[in-house]
Design a protein around this nucleic acid. Structure first.
Lengths: 216, 216
DNA sequence: GAAGTTCTGTGATGCAAATCACAATGTAAA
DNA sequence: TTTACATTGTGATTTGCATCACAGAACTTC
C-alpha cells in the first residue's frame, strides 16, 4: 500500500546477497530511495553532515582526504557495487562532521538509507549488523593498505598500483585522466607523474594519449 | 555463585561509564578476565588470530603496522584507558588474521572478553553496540590522522606531534626512548631523528639525555 | 678500571621527488 | 583559421631524507 520501491528487493538480491532477511528487505524497500549520479558529482564534502547512508548498486565512488592546511589531496580508496561508505556510518551515528570527500568515479546508482534506520536495524537484523561490521572491517583494511602504500612504497610502485586499481574500477584497459588528476590522487607533482608514465610507456607497460592511458 | 570477578563492575564504572546497563556489567564480570602486562610485552602479533578483545583500564597500548616487504615499521596510534582495539573486533568477528602488532607502551591492565560475546552483546545491549561503533569511529579517525601525518607533513612536524602524543600517553614531560626507537615508530632513519632532535634542543624545545628526552 | 656494547653526533654523498621554468603539442572557442 | 587554453614533455635546481662512515660519549660487564 505504501510507497514501496519495487526495484529495491531485486537490487538487494543481486548486489547485497547477505542482506537476505525478507523483513529487512521490506524495510529497505519502504524507506530507501534510489538515486542516480553522474561521474564527477560530489556526494559528500568535507565538513558536511550526513543524513543518509548509501548502498552502492552500480558504478564506483572515490573517497578522498584533503589536507586542512594547504589543500593537498590523497585518494583513500574506491567503493564498488555491493559496498557502502563506513565513514558515513561513523559520521552519522556519532553525528560528526565528515573528514573526507566522496565523488562519483563511475556513473553510480545507490539506495540511500536515512541514518536513523542504520542504528535501529543493527539491533533488529543480524544480517544488517554483520553487514555494517563487515564494512567497517574492509574499510579499515583499505586504510591500512593506503598507509602501507604511502609509508613504504615509492612513487613508481604507487602509480602502477593506482593504474591497476583504476582499471578495475572502470573495468577497462583505457583510463581517462590527466596527469594532473593522477598526481592529485597520489599527492604527487604533475611532473613526477608525467616522467614516471613516460618511463612506463618506454617499457611498453602503457601507451599515452592526451587525457587517456592505455594499459598494456 | 559463579566465578564472578568482583573488581570488574568497579573498573567498568570508572573507565567505561557508558557501559552502564547492569546486566551487561554482570555478564562482563562473569566472562571477562583481568590481565596485567608490563611495558614492552607483545599483546598481538602479525598473522595471529585473536581470541579475545581487550578493554583497557590502565596504561597504554601501541598499535604498529609492519611492512611485509622489508620489515619497516610505522606507528598507527596509541590506545588509552577507556578504549579498546577495534582492529581486534574486525579481526575476530571476521575471523581473519591480524594486520598489525600491539605492544604495551605503559604497564597495562585490561579486561579480556572472549570474542563470542562481542558479537552476542551487540544485539542484546545497546550500550555495548554503541561502544563498539564508537570505537570503530575513533579508530577510523586516528587512521585518517595518521595518513594526514605521513602524507602531508614533514619529519620535523611529525616528530613534534609524536613527542607530544607520547608525553600525553605517559603523562610525563620526560620520555624514555632511544632515537632509534623513535625513528622506527616514524619510519625514519635514526640519523634524521637525531639531527631533528638536536635542532629542537637548540631552539630550547627539548633537552636531550641518553635514552631520555625532556620536553620543555 | 679495562673492554665491550649501546647510544649519540656529525660529515659526506646519493637519490627520489618537489619546484621552477619553458617549449611543444593538442583541443576548443572566436 | 586564428586565438586561447589545457595538457604534456623535459631540463635545471633545490630539498628532505636515506645511507654510509666514523668518532666520541655513556653505560655494562668482567
Amino acid at each position: 500500500m505504501d510507497n514501496i520501491n519495487l526495484e529495491i528487493p531485486d537490487l538487494l538480491r543481486r548486489h547485497f546477497p547477505f542482506l537476505r532477511e525478507s523483513s529487512l528487505q521490506k524495510e529497505i524497500a519502504l524507506v530507501g530511495a534510489i538515486h542516480h549520479f553522474k561521474e564527477g558529482e560530489i556526494l559528500m564534502n568535507f565538513g558536511s553532515y550526513i543524513k543518509s547512508v548509501p548502498l552502492l548498486v552500480k558504478g564506483a565512488i572515490k573517497v578522498v582526504r584533503e589536507d586542512d592546511v594547504d589543500g593537498k589531496e590523497l585518494l583513500l580508496y574506491f567503493l564498488h557495487a555491493g559496498q557502502t561508505c563506513s565513514m558515513s556510518f561513523s559520521c552519522c551515528m556519532m553525528n560528526k562532521k565528515s573528514d573526507i570527500r566522496t565523488t562519483v568515479e563511475d556513473d553510480a546508482t545507490l539506495i540511500a538509507i536515512p541514518i536513523k534506520y542504520v542504528d535501529e536495524w543493527m539491533g533488529k537484523y543480524s544480517s544488517w549488523k554483520n553487514f555494517v561490521m563487515q564494512s567497517y572491517d574492509s574499510r579499515m583494511r583499505e586504510m591500512v593498505r593506503t598507509i602501507d602504500s604511502i609509508a613504504f612504497r615509492k612513487m613508481d610502485e604507487r602509480l602502477l598500483e593506482y593504474l591497476y586499481q583504476k582499471s578495475k574500477v572502470h573495468q577497462s584497459k583505457i583510463l581517462f585522466a590527466t596527469h594532473q588528476e593522477i598526481a592529485d590522487d597520489l599527492n604527487a607533482s604533475r611532473e613526477a607523474i608525467s616522467r614516471l608514465l613516460k618511463k612506463l610507456e618506454n617499457s611498453n607497460r602503457v601507451r599515452l594519449e592526451r587525457n587517456k592511458i592505455h594499459i598494456l
